[in-house]
Write a protein that binds this DNA or RNA. Structure first.
Length: 220
DNA sequence: CTCCCGATAT
DNA sequence: ATATCAGGAG
C-alpha cells in the first residue's frame, strides 16, 4: 500500500500534469444550482449533464421556480439523463424542503444535506466543496474510487470506505481538488476499461500499471 | 442486493 | 451485445 510521502508526490505530479484545467462550471453557479446539477450528474456522462443543466437553469433557477413547476415539466427538460423520472421527483421535493424547512437556503452541513432525497455521500460532499468552498469532505465518485484503488492509495470495496481511507492518507490541502483532478484523469487517461497507462504521469507509482506490465502489455 | 433508466463507449 | 456513466434509496 502506498503511504503518505508517495501520495504527496503523486498529487503534485497530477496537479502539474493537469495545470490550467481548473473548474469552470461551478464558478458561475450558486450552491443550490451545484446541488441540483450534481443530482443530475449521477450515473450520467458529464457531456450530457452539461447540456441538460444548462437547459434546466434557463427554465428554472431558484427553489421557488422548481417548487412551482410540476414533476412532468421538470421531467421534460431533463429527459436524457439517467434515472430522469426519479431525479425530477427528487429535485421538486428538495426545492420544497429547502423553501419550507431551510428558509430558501441550501443547508451548509453534510448531515443536513444527506437528509435530502437523492443526496448521498458524494452529492453532499460535492455541494460542500464546490458549492460552499469547504474542504471538510472528499467527494468520492466512480473515478475517485477506481483510481485511488488502481494506484494503490487504498484497497476498498465501496466509495464510503474509500472516502474514510483517503481522509486518513491525503493531506487536507488536497481534499478540495482531488475530485476534479481524478475526474479529469479518469475521463482522459485512467479510463475504466482501457486505461492509457503509457501516457499516465503517475505510472511509476501505480500498482495497477506495475502488475499489468508483469503479465503483458495491453497498453495503447 | 435490486431497482431506477437513457445515452454512449467498447 | 455488454459495460459504464460526476449514485442513491428501499
Amino acid at each position: 500500500m502506498i503511504e503518505k510521502q508517495e501520495i504527496e508526490e503523486i498529487m503534485q505530479k497530477l496537479l502539474k500534469f493537469y495545470e490550467g484545467r481548473e473548474i469552470e462550471w461551478s464558478a458561475s453557479l450558486n450552491p443550490f444550482q451545484i446541488l441540483i446539477g450534481t443530482i443530475l450528474s449521477q450515473r450520467t456522462r458529464d457531456v450530457m449533464t452539461e447540456k441538460i443543466t444548462k437547459k434546466l437553469f434557463e427554465k428554472f433557477a431558484t427553489p421557488e421556480d422548481f417548487n412551482k413547476a410540476s414533476v412532468e415539466e421538470i421531467e421534460n427538460v431533463i429527459r436524457g439523463a439517467g434515472f430522469y423520472k426519479q431525479k425530477a421527483k427528487r429535485i421538486k421535493e428538495i426545492a420544497e424542503i429547502i423553501l419550507k424547512k431551510y428558509n430558501g437556503k441550501v443547508p451548509e452541513s453534510r448531515e443536513e444535506l444527506m437528509k435530502l432525497p437523492g443526496v448521498g455521500a458524494k452529492t453532499s460532499a460535492i455541494t460542500m466543496v464546490y458549492g460552499f468552498g469547504k474542504n471538510d469532505a472528499i467527494p468520492v465518485d466512480t473515478h475517485v474510487h477506481r483510481i485511488s484503488n488502481r494506484i494503490g492509495m487504498v484497497k476498498t470495496k465501496t466509495p464510503e470506505e474509500t472516502e474514510k481511507e483517503l481522509m486518513k492518507k491525503i493531506p487536507r490541502k488536497y481534499w478540495n481538488v482531488i475530485n476534479h483532478l481524478f475526474v479529469i484523469h479518469g475521463q482522459s487517461i485512467c479510463l475504466p476499461m482501457k486505461p492509457r497507462c503509457n501516457e499516465c504521469p503517475t505510472k511509476e507509482h501505480c500498482r495497477y500499471f506495475r502488475d499489468c506490465r508483469k503479465i503483458n502489455q495491453k497498453q495503447s
